[in-house]
Amino acid sequence: MTELPSTPSAWALLALAAALVGFSKTGINGTASLSILLFATLLPAKESTGALLPVLILGDLFAIRFYSRHVEWRVLGRLAPWVVIGTAIGAVALWFADDSTMRVVIGAILLAMLALQVWSKLRPRPEEPKPPTGLARRSAAAGAGVAAGAATMMANAAGPVMVLYLMLSGFSKLRFLGTMAWFFFAVNLFKVPISVGLGLITWHTIVMAALLIPAVAAGALAGRALVHRVNQKQFEIATLALSALGAALLII
């Protein structure tokens, strides 16, 4: 990223994207897809992944502050080595991809992740889901870890993978939020030196993130306040529909 946006409208949309990041981290997961779309629309698609990363880390800090007591460390330990492998795969892809290719990749990843979320919501579920055990648990951790690592490195879009994995594990709401918070904080920090090495994080992206702190904070506080008060199903359906439209426009 060679320079900061210069128009008020661009900054207004970046602030909206930052607020959605905060809201997604502490409230209803899924709105971050709109943030990915906005950043990829306002900035060169490849550079947008690095520009968004510091903003995501700010959102992670708010989520940790609110939900850190509810983290499930054993789950994170099982995922960790597989996430590293997936992140390495995503970094290699970023190294060779140009901007036009990255727009298609980001759009395709968003559509795939959105389809995964829709499937997870529509499939029949037992009344009391039980966490997988033995080989099934290890296989699920491997698949989710590699997919999440690659998706987050290439498009900051690992949220739906983790949503599905933790839902299938039978997590309660607070355990879900706390584990997601620490997972993404650790993964996003791990991505920082890789993104710097790829030239995706610069002083301009750091300055941009600092200027967007108030927007992230506002979104995070709103997410925490509203997560128990809104009709989550309707809200998520609307978010998925808008994100799918945005992802399709990126590909076109």
Rank of each mutant, 00 (worst) to 15 (best):
T2E: 11
L4T: 06
P5T: 01
S9Q: 03
L13A: 06
A15S: 08
L16F: 02
F23A: 10
S24H: 10
T26Y: 01
I28Y: 03
G30E: 04
A32N: 10
S35Y: 09
T41S: 07
A45I: 00
K46V: 07
K46S: 09
T49E: 03
L53A: 05
I57F: 02
G59F: 06
L61A: 10
L61S: 04
L61F: 15
F62D: 04
F62G: 04
R65M: 11
Y67M: 09
R69D: 14
R74L: 08
L76I: 09
L76W: 00
V84L: 15
G86F: 11
D99R: 10
S100R: 12
T101D: 02
M102A: 07
A108M: 00
L111K: 03
L114M: 14
A115D: 04
L116Q: 11
S120Y: 09
K121I: 10
K121F: 02
K121N: 13
R123I: 13
P124Q: 08
K130D: 09
K130I: 13
L135T: 15
L135A: 15
S139H: 12
A142K: 06
G143D: 05
G145T: 02
V146Q: 09
A147N: 11
M153P: 06
A155S: 07
N156P: 09
G159C: 10
P160M: 10
P160I: 11
P160W: 09
V161K: 07
V161Y: 01
L164P: 02
L177R: 08
G178I: 12
G178K: 09
M180F: 06
W182K: 07
F184K: 12
V196R: 04
W203N: 12
W203S: 06
I213Q: 07
A225G: 00
V230S: 05
Q232A: 15
K233Y: 05
K233M: 00
Q234P: 00
E236V: 06
I237W: 10
A238E: 00
L240A: 13
A241F: 13
A247M: 11
I251F: 05
I251C: 14
I252V: 13
